[in-house]
Design a protein around this nucleic acid. Structure first.
Lengths: 348, 348
DNA sequence: TATTTCGCTGTAATCGATTGCACTAAAATA
DNA sequence: TATTTTAGTGCAATCGATTACAGCGAAATA
């Protein structure tokens, strides 16, 4: 009960007339300490309102029991859900999570990694920024003997584990679903193709078309930003084509929404005349009056699995040689924006 | 460049044949160190890839440059936006944010506070859980000389600062707006009235009614959970009344959405026959085909201001005596679900 | 020339907890 | 009774950085 509320093992040791070493051992339930002493120490610790100083422990042990999580923006549903998953899996193991944002800047990403390393985190989880091209800063993490785990957006770096969904398959499934609904001219609203995830979605789309005997049409592929406005603009663009599409597989729910709004505005009926699938299963997709078909990326699960990979690695002595790549299955949530079966029933 | 990549000031001091103290001073730009030595040290530090150990600094200085943020759930738009605001304001000052969840359990909240204190955070930001009734754990934080700042959901605890929006005013504004649209029988879908925020919204609602000559009707107040289902159920409930309401001020966007869905299902026209306002300005409210009127809580701003309050306190020596209470103005976002002016124009 | 001042650097303690090694007294064994 | 074992503790170094205090050589002053 000192002024600043800082009670240390030395305070306890003085009070009980024993050494600080004994207090430390007693608190850690070291079997070499007699039950009598241990009980005394615990009683005194409680009475004096002793709190262990995790900083001191961390300095001594070299393990801070903190991990860093780096994402472009915290307040995106996808990322905050992953963070939640990691926190919930790691919390019970005594870890705290430190959150950083990159704002999609590689420069900031490098900086964040450096400060996290300075803080002695035991590992780093991250989704790379859109502008990330170099990998030196990732290697630094490995050089320090800490594990690095990519989730969703990744780069191939030796020694770095990753947890992603199968974006290729997701693109394939969504496109195949649109085909199954009778769509013949399927457009794709792509994301930044420099990112692996968007490239894979695109390729899944292409493959599905080919597998079902459709010739991919480059005019049907529009690169968009993940925004409602961008989706509406992209619709205007493809609407200038002679042979207009009758479906869109969008790599983003926001562009899908913008597309739907624009299509309705120009009088297109969905899903009768036009089918749409988005991506990410953003909360709003299921709340719409016309719920939007989308691909669920199971972010909570993704976070939990990333955390499990981390835990395996910290416990293992040869952690750096293990490089675990987990690929999760995406789940297509079929909803009204692309589901003609409901509609047909209504017609009958 | 040792095995584990740990370079300390001692390594630099050995290499340059000077003392570690000099290295430390040089790195900290202590003016007592000659420029020559300083340059040598910086060069060596860079060459050896030296990284300061923030744990050691923290232990020595008593300042970890970490703050804790405790929220019920990370992946709620409102909370993740606040976290973002805090991170963006504190990051440039060298702070890291550690995130914890309570899952609305007071027990967990107490635990999280304890582990954060053990980790020697310099301050704690939090929104209390629904089940929080005691305040002992908050006092502990103050006893340790650290600042505690509530945002949104708070309790009155001496010495604890807070940043909230004026929920009373928000409730008043929303209700008054509904009145201005010609609604005569306005219901309220309330949240957990044990929480100050929901109580204030309710009271703002009551006051607005009275101020405009309406007699509050207890039958029109339904306590709901913040979910779509709960909103639909609440509509069913008020629809059993003889005199049915013609508007709802809902303390949650989710219940507002559920209400809209249910009202549409039973054939009520919105906003012609019925007006609705939600609360929180969840992202989906503006994306709906019938965008939902809602109260914006400006979470980003709230987070930034909370961070500013913290910064003022850590810099001030008598921080514990200052107890700052910031009340932000809410912003009513009027949208189609309650805006009859648009509708009238259409009729003309 | 003798003394004071100043600029720069080193010594050692400190933050709080942990742990290898040494030590003592009591118990077990010869 | 003499000796070994064992249980229980203490001493002191350590993790890495900071900082009060002391010290030393060179320049400035008397």
């Amino acid at each position: 009960m000192k002024e600043n509320g800082k009670v240390t093992i030395y305070d306890i040791s003085k009070k009980l007339n024993i050494s600080a070493a004994t207090v430390s051992r007693a608190l850690n339930n070291n079997p070499k300490i007699s039950k009598k002493t241990r009980d005394l120490v615990f009683a005194a610790a409680k009475e004096m309102n002793y709190k262990q100083n995790r900083l001191a422990q961390a300095l001594k042990s070299g393990k801070s029991k903190n991990v860093g999580i780096i994402v472009p923006y915290i307040n995106r549903n996808f990322f905050s859900s992953i963070i939640r998953g990691i926190e919930e899996e790691l919390g019970p193991h005594g870890y705290h999570v430190i959150i950083c944002q990159t704002h999609e800047q590689m420069e900031t990403e490098v900086e964040q990694i450096n400060t996290l390393l300075n803080t002695q985190v035991d590992g780093i989880f991250m989704s790379i920024s859109k502008s990330t091209t170099k990998t030196d800063h990732f290697k630094k993490v490995l050089d320090e003997g800490k594990s690095l785990i990519f989730f969703d957006r990744k780069l191939d770096v030796p020694g770095v584990s990753s947890v992603v969904i199968d974006d290729f398959k997701a693109g394939y499934l969504a496109t195949e679903h649109l085909i199954s609904q009778g769509c013949k001219n399927i457009a794709h609203f792509a994301g930044d193709l420099n990112l692996e995830i968007y490239k894979n979605r695109y390729e899944g789309y292409i493959k599905a078309l080919k597998d079902h005997g459709f010739q991919p049409n480059p005019d049907y592929v529009v690169t968009t930003l993940s925004s409602v406005e961008s989706g509406a603009a992209a619709v205007s663009k493809i609407w200038e084509l002679n042979e207009k599409p009758d479906a869109i597989f969008s790599a983003s729910d926001y562009t899908a929404l913008g597309a739907i709004q624009e299509l309705k505005r120009i009088g297109i009926r969905i899903p009768e005349d036009f089918c749409i699938s988005g991506f990410s299963n953003e909360p709003f997709t299921k709340y719409m009056e016309m719920p939007i078909t989308s691909v669920d990326q199971t972010p909570l699960r993704m976070g939990k699995i990333a955390a499990q990979v981390f835990l395996e690695q910290v416990d293992s002595p040869q952690k750096l040689t293990i490089e675990k790549k987990v690929v999760l299955a995406p789940e297509l949530m079929v909803r009204n924006s692309s589901d003609r079966s409901l509609h047909k029933l209504a017609i009958h």
